[in-house]
Amino acid sequence: MPVAELAFAPGIDAYEPSHRGEPILEVRNLAVAVDDGLAVENVDLSLEAGRTHCLVGESGCGKSLTCLALMGLLPPGARGVSGNLRMKGRSGAIPEKGPPEGLAMIYQDATASLDPLMTVGRQIVEALPADVPRRARRAEAEDLIAQVGIPHARARFESYPHELSGGMNQRIAIAIALAARPSVLLADEPTTALDVTVQARILDLMLEFQQSTGLAILFVTHDLGVVAQIAHDVSVMYCGEIVESGPVTDLFAAPRHPYSRGLVECLPRLSRQTERLESIAGIVPPLQARPTGCRFASRCTRADDLCSTQRPCLERRGNTGAVACFNPL
């Protein structure tokens, strides 16, 4: 499908970060078309050096697809992508074949994202920039293995993915992503399949790298706990759209969108034991059956007539965040 033919909702003036210099990566109006319609729509994101932006939402909301679209790695089912990408001052269309320079990604299932027939060392070497001389490549890869906290880097260079644990493979995946010397790292649920103790160490590791290199991270997750731990900014996605965006403290202290509030409330917490967990009634509508108005309307306790006929746009509220709701909290 030619990009120009994609239908768009009216353009919006979304949440602009009102602080700290130029964003390192800006996405405007990202849309991804699949067979049944637009799986991702109107997505605007902006990432800054040294900060983590979390993209939260439930399965099927389009958060992984957003990452893959930015990387130019859309799955075969995707029919087309449109939008603008501005990176380090250079702007252009969303890439269709492979990522732009400076962008790297960590994938959801680390073990599956490693070639089972190739040593992990060679897979890291492969990701090094082309200008690293041939003789220095192995040493550099071993360095990266050590940096991601794997002992005996020299021996581990020769290991195959099946010889390492899930946590180790996730570290290798991080080493591969870092090998490209990215300024922006996309991380798609990198710790979801891991044990909590391993998850904690992987998150610490990513944080360390961010602090030492000023990496901007877009972190995709469904776990609000992880968001609380690592995010500076958050965008909440529902049914392919961003419904709320802002600093993480605002999301937890005073969520504006009823869906965001639901997500925050239904997180089981260690510090309190309530009789019932809050939950959001109903289920996410499938792509073919998305309502015409607000997509959350059917599950929302605050919905009125306007919500079922008109689609709210993401608009700035106050001076920090943006929310797409006619009746925000």
């Binding site: 909590v196 103790t197 998850q199 904690a200 776990d223 609380a228 731990q229 403290t249 937890f252 260690l270």
Partner: peptide
């Protein structure tokens, strides 16, 4: 260790 590894309930903790 298991408890410490859990993500916090609120940002900033």
């Amino acid at each position: 260790a298991l408890i410490d590894a859990l993500p916090p309930d609120q940002p900033g903790q």
